[in-house]
Amino acid sequence: WGKEGHYATCKIAQSLLTEEATKAVKELLPESEGNLSAVCSWPDEIKWMNKWRWTSELHYVDTPDFRCNYDYDRDCHDSSGVKDRCVTGAIYNYTEQLVTGYNASNSVTNYNLTEALMFLSHYIGDVHQPLHVSFTTDEGGNTITVRWYKRKTNLHHVWDSDIIESAMKTFYDKDLNVMISAIEKNMTTTWSNDISSWANCTSAEEVCPDPWASESIKCSCNYAYRNATPGSTLGDEYFLSRLPVVEMRLAQGGVRLA
């Protein structure tokens, strides 16, 4: 996601944190007084820097072209083939760091738990952006040039930012917090019966990013790539039919992060 998507995911999660989790987040984020949504874009801000370049491939997972499915063992590796270097592998990794680091009374682990919290919060958001789990050759839609109404852009950017920004302008008084409130309202009405299934892992795992990634590749094939061929102009028909998908993915990311 772009700034708005990460802010929304983390703002939604923040409102669902337990007392203990709120306390822990406050301890780990002293500079932002525990305001998680203030730091959720940090991994995007640093991934260009030499010191952090190795993190840039952790924001997504590439799947084989036109195969509308995801498999950890097949897909979770970086462009050099190094295993576990993808967004789901990163979610497992930073969850593990926080579980072992935060609970360990003896501070044997020297993980930076503040960084682990910011990376985990960002990556749980990203795995819910459908095109962050999508085809290798078009780089998750980055090489698919389209028009968003009158403006030239690419399909990845449409899903990272353009749909959200158009929604804010069209429906939410240009105010992201108004959009977040509308999503949270949906969570208490339309999606109220789904929240617990979103939140729980069917496997016994502490965190379960694999089904989240499978949902995203399905959304990529059914919604993002569909009717968005290179050079096409995307307008109301595409925007109004895809906005509900974006809003649900932001809600699911927030519930699962919390």
């Binding site: 989790a21 072992t100 360990a104 502490e206 919390a258």
Partner: peptide, 15 residues
């Protein structure tokens, strides 16, 4: 769900 689980006191520390 993830952060609440991680920061539950005495959360199950995985092997």
């Amino acid at each position: 769900a993830t952060l609440n689980q991680i920061f539950t006191p005495y959360a199950s520390v995985s092997q």
